[in-house]
Computed example of a mutant assay.
Amino acid sequence: MLLQPAVETDYPAIVDLANLAYRGTGESASWNVEAGIIEGQRLNGSLLREELAAKPDAQLLICRDAANGPLLGTVWLEPKQGSIWYLGLLTVRPDIQNRHIGRALLAAAEEFAQERGAERIRMTVVNVRDALIAWYVRRGYTLTGETEPFPYGDERFGKPLRDDLHFLVLEKSLSLNC
């Protein structure tokens, strides 16, 4: 697996993958789409550029099998306070999810952050995405008991279809238990 920082020429493929992975429909849909929860676009080029410009310490990483191969997945890593990093936008092409690329990409992202001083990874997941939360728990993440509000009224990431949404905070220690 080749994990490398995204460059401008990757942005259209990243946008397409994020929208397919989060909001795809039909036979090409991912196992963890947000159908019935949020509709519309998950990402566009302007929003991606805006996020990257606003967070210059963040890393948007892409995954490929080979240097010039097709985009297989993405992950966003951002140093926060101290040795805590935020992980988001973990996506994998739905047609290859049975290859366990998501697991490998998550592990590679954790290693990438740890090599840069991360001791803990935090993320937020929409509260009603039980299967996705369970997937992260199986990979060592725990629910912290913290929540964050859902950005109702800001439809840049899509239109919520429910009025009971919020984010759950999950965290994983990257420290080795010796």
Rank of each mutant, 00 (worst) to 15 (best):
T9F: 08
P12A: 12
A13C: 13
V15H: 03
A18M: 08
N19P: 06
L20Q: 02
Y22I: 01
T25L: 11
T25F: 04
T25V: 11
E27Y: 11
S28I: 04
S28H: 06
A29H: 03
A29P: 04
S30I: 04
S30N: 11
W31K: 15
N32T: 09
V33I: 06
E34C: 12
G36N: 12
E39V: 04
E39D: 10
G40P: 03
G40H: 04
Q41P: 03
S46R: 13
S46A: 14
L47Q: 10
L47I: 09
L48S: 10
L48D: 07
E50T: 14
E51V: 13
E51P: 08
L52Y: 04
L52E: 05
L52S: 02
L52G: 03
L52R: 07
A53R: 13
A54V: 06
A54M: 06
A54T: 06
A54P: 06
K55H: 13
K55R: 15
K55P: 02
P56A: 12
P56R: 11
P56D: 12
P56K: 12
D57A: 12
I62E: 03
I62A: 03
R64C: 08
N68S: 09
G69N: 07
G69K: 06
P70D: 12
L72E: 02
G73V: 01
T74W: 11
T74Q: 11
L77A: 14
E78I: 11
P79A: 12
Q81S: 10
S83P: 02
S83I: 03
I84G: 05
L87R: 03
L87Q: 13
L89M: 15
L89Q: 14
T91A: 03
V92N: 04
I96M: 08
Q97T: 02
N98Q: 08
R99Y: 08
H100F: 05
G102S: 07
G102H: 09
G102N: 09
R103A: 15
L105T: 05
L105C: 07
A107K: 14
A107S: 12
A108G: 10
E110A: 12
E110H: 09
E111A: 04
A113R: 10
E115F: 00
E115N: 05
R116T: 08
A118L: 01
A118Y: 02
R120E: 08
I121T: 10
R122P: 00
M123G: 07
M123K: 06
T124V: 01
V125I: 15
V128T: 15
R129Q: 15
R129A: 11
R129I: 08
D130S: 08
D130K: 05
I133V: 13
A134Q: 15
W135F: 13
W135K: 09
R138G: 15
R139Q: 15
T142V: 06
T142N: 00
T142S: 01
L143K: 00
E146W: 00
T147P: 00
E148T: 08
E148C: 05
P149N: 10
Y152Q: 08
